[in-house]
Amino acid sequence: MDDMEGEGTIKKFLYLNRKAPYGTVYALESLEVVLIGAAFDQDVSLAFVDDGVYQIRKNHNTKVDSGIGMKDFSKTYRVLEDYDVEKLYVEKESMEERGLTKDDLIVPVEIMDRAQMAALMAEQDVVLSF
């Protein structure tokens, strides 16, 4: 990670989230890396594509008594702003084939179509895929 130590060089980082939450650990791992990485003052974006859109669906209920007994980390996406991670993008096609709209999501996001998403990825220095 020598590149990250170059003083004053701000790079464009994109975290690409493509997995549903809870079934695998990818979604939570990605979120934790984002929060840790936030200390490095880079230009960070998050993209939610494919099943990754499900990560930010509202109304998760994972309680021990009535549910699966795992941590509901969907609530944590709401602190990203406090960590100065403010650029969240959702691919329109992924959202639509799941019957979801912007109103179903727990945080404000910018909706991009497939071409815009591809363009966003093309302009990154680093894409971290989860």
Partner: peptide, 10 residues
Amino acid sequence: LPDLEARGMR
């Protein structure tokens, strides 16, 4: 149902 609810569905 618990898996539906965990993922935000009823």
